[in-house]
Every structure is written in C-alpha cells, then in structure tokens.
Simulated scan of single mutants.
Amino acid sequence: MKAPLKADGNYFDGKNRADFHNVPVFIIQEDNTVIYYSPVFDVSGYGHSEDEAAKSLIVAIQEFLKYTINKKTIELELAKLGWKRAKKKKFVPPAMSDMVKKRDYLSEIINDHNFRKESINVSVPAVA
C-alpha cells in the first residue's frame, strides 16, 4: 500500500522562493463550471474544464504567495491559515479535520457536494 501524501512547503527568504508540495485540492463540478479549491490556502480557481480550473487555482496560489512574500507577511498569513513551522523555513499545513471544524463552508463541500481530492505542487520562483 502506498504511503499517504503529506503536504509541505518551503520558503526561502534570501531567494524569495516558495515551493509547496502535495497541496490538497477538492475538485467540484457545478453546472458547467469546474471548481478547484485548496483548503490549505483557502483559495479557489475555476474554469469550463479541469485544465482551466487547475491553471486558475495555481495562478491564485502563486499570486497569494507573491503578494505575501513581497509584503513580508508570508509566515503570518500561513500561520493564520493554520500552517505550522516544522523547521527554519519548512511549513506543514493544518490537518483536514482542523480545517473542517473552523470553516463551515468546508464541511458543506464535504457533506453536500460530489467532489474528488487530488494533490498539486505550486512554486513561486526566485525574483530576479
């Protein structure tokens, strides 16, 4: 049996780079729209196809990361979302059960919608 994927993130301050791996994503179909929702960043993307929705979500997460890196608030914002620092610049997201307790709409997604869960990787490259 395969070991479960564990999300994590690294932020390299000197290089202004962020890498997040195995980010959980809920994929929901509503009418003619596909929604990709990342509970660990509390952002979503959407489109008419899964490809459009996935690209939209990645852009939304990258913009969140770029903005918070630029404002030097990335660690504060990750903490607000429930991320914990594991090592110097390594972060782990909150447990899904903790997020469900704090976000009613996440419980609604799980209880009232057909969805599937996948994982993605997101990076913000070093700024030149």
Rank of each mutant, 00 (worst) to 15 (best):
G9T: 04
G47W: 02
Y11N: 04
Q29Y: 04
W83E: 00
A86Y: 11
Y36T: 02
K88P: 01
G45Y: 02
F20G: 02
Q62D: 06
V59F: 15
A86F: 12
N111T: 11
K2H: 03
A79T: 15
E30R: 10
E30D: 11
V25S: 01
A126G: 15
S49A: 06
S44H: 14
K102Q: 13
P39E: 05
R116I: 11
D51R: 08
K55H: 14
G14F: 06
L65K: 00
F64I: 07
K6Q: 08
P93R: 01
A86G: 05
A126D: 08
E52F: 12
H21N: 13
A79K: 14
S49E: 05
I58P: 01
H113I: 02
L5F: 06
I28T: 07
A79M: 09
A128L: 13
N16P: 00
L81Q: 03
Y36W: 07
N70Y: 09
F12I: 14
E118V: 13
D112F: 12
H113S: 09
V34M: 05
D112R: 09
V34H: 01
K71P: 04
E50T: 10
R103T: 12
N70H: 10
K72H: 11
D19R: 11
V124D: 02
F115S: 06
F91C: 03
K6H: 05
K89M: 08
Y105R: 13
R116W: 07
A18Q: 01
I120P: 00
L81R: 09
K55G: 14
K84Y: 04
P93Y: 02
I27Q: 02
K90T: 14
Q62T: 11
K15G: 13
Y46P: 01
L81V: 04
V34P: 00
F12C: 10
H21A: 10
N70R: 13
R103Q: 12
A54V: 04
K89H: 11
V100E: 10
G9I: 03
Q62P: 07
N114R: 11
N22Q: 09
E50Y: 08
H48W: 05
I109G: 03
G9R: 00
N10R: 14
K84D: 09
S119Y: 12
P4F: 04
L57E: 03
T73R: 10
M96R: 09
G82Y: 00
D8G: 10
K89E: 13
L57I: 06
V59Q: 13
K102A: 14
K15E: 15
E52S: 11
A53Q: 03
G14N: 07
L76I: 14
V43A: 06
K66G: 06
K6E: 10
S107V: 06
G9Y: 01
A7H: 02
Y11S: 06
D13Y: 07
P4Y: 05
I27P: 00
L76W: 11
V23L: 13
L81F: 03
P4M: 05
I74A: 01
S44M: 12
K87G: 09
I28C: 03
N111Q: 12
L65N: 00
S56K: 09
I109K: 03
F91Y: 15
N16Y: 03
I27V: 13
K72D: 13
S56V: 10
D31L: 07
L106F: 13
V100R: 07
